[in-house]
Design a protein around this nucleic acid. Structure first.
Length: 184
DNA sequence: TATGAGATCAACT
DNA sequence: GTTGATCTCATAC
C-alpha cells in the first residue's frame, strides 16, 4: 500500500481498510473492523495537541501510532491525512489468515475467532508493542495489501469511549464473525 | 448473557 | 490523584 493511500481523510481511508490484509512479520489477516479518530473531536488522543505520546500522529501519514491502553494492552493506529492534521484509524479486529500458529502461541488460545477480535488482542497476536510506534507502514515488518473486491460495509458508533460517543465512525465487514462486537 | 473487579501506565488536572 | 480508544476471569442470573 503506497503512502499516498494514507494521505487522505480518515473517513475515506477507514472504510477502504475493511477487507485489506495487514501483516506484521508475515503474521496477520484481513481487517474486519476499524474506528476513525480525528484531532477535531474530544475522543481523539490528538485532541489536546502534541505530546510525547501523540507526536507521531502530527507527523506524515502512513506511520504506525501505538499506545498503551488501560496500563496493559497495546493498540495500533494507522496515521492518516496530510501532515499536520492529526488523525488516525484504530485497527480493532482481523480475520486471521497468516501465521495462525504464531498467533495461537502468543495468545495462548486455539479459537480463531478470539485471536484478533479486539484492538488489544490483535496487538498481542501480532506482537505489536511500543517498539513499533512511529514505524512506516509501507516497509517491513509491516505489509498492507489492498483488497481485491469491495466488501459490504456496516457502520456504528465507536466502542469504549465516553466523549463524542455518538459519532458513527466505526466501520466493519458486514456479517463477519471476527469483529469485537456485533453491529446492531 | 450480563455485570463487576483487577491489572497497571502515561497524560492530564 | 484521576482517567481511560481494553481484556480476562469470576460470579450471578
Amino acid at each position: 500500500m503506497p503512502q499516498k493511500f494514507f494521505a487522505r481523510s480518515v473517513h475515506e481511508v477507514a472504510p477502504e481498510l475493511i477487507g485489506a490484509t495487514f501483516l506484521v512479520d508475515g503474521v496477520g489477516g484481513v481487517i474486519v473492523e476499524v474506528e476513525a479518530y480525528h484531532q477535531s473531536e474530544p475522543a481523539a488522543h490528538a485532541y489536546r495537541g502534541v505530546t510525547p505520546r501523540t507526536q507521531v500522529m502530527f507527523g506524515p501519514p502512513g506511520f504506525a501510532y501505538v499506545y498503551r491502553s488501560y496500563g496493559i494492552h497495546w493498540c495500533i493506529n494507522f496515521v492518516c491525512e496530510p501532515a499536520g492534521a492529526a488523525a488516525a484509524v484504530l485497527i480493532r479486529a482481523l480475520r486471521p489468515t497468516h501465521g495462525l500458529e504464531a498467533m495461537r502461541r502468543r495468545r495462548g488460545l486455539d479459537d480463531e475467532r478470539m485471536l484478533c477480535s479486539g484492538p488489544g488482542k490483535l496487538a498481542a497476536a501480532l506482537a505489536i508493542t511500543k517498539a513499533q510506534n512511529g514505524l512506516a507502514l509501507t516497509a517491513p515488518p509491516f505489509a498492507i495489501h489492498a483488497r481485491s473486491l469491495e466488501p459490504e460495509i456496516v457502520t456504528g458508533v465507536r466502542i469504549g469511549i465516553t466523549k463524542a460517543a455518538e459519532l458513527p465512525w466505526r466501520y466493519g465487514l458486514k456479517g463477519s464473525r471476527f469483529v469485537s462486537k456485533r453491529f446492531s
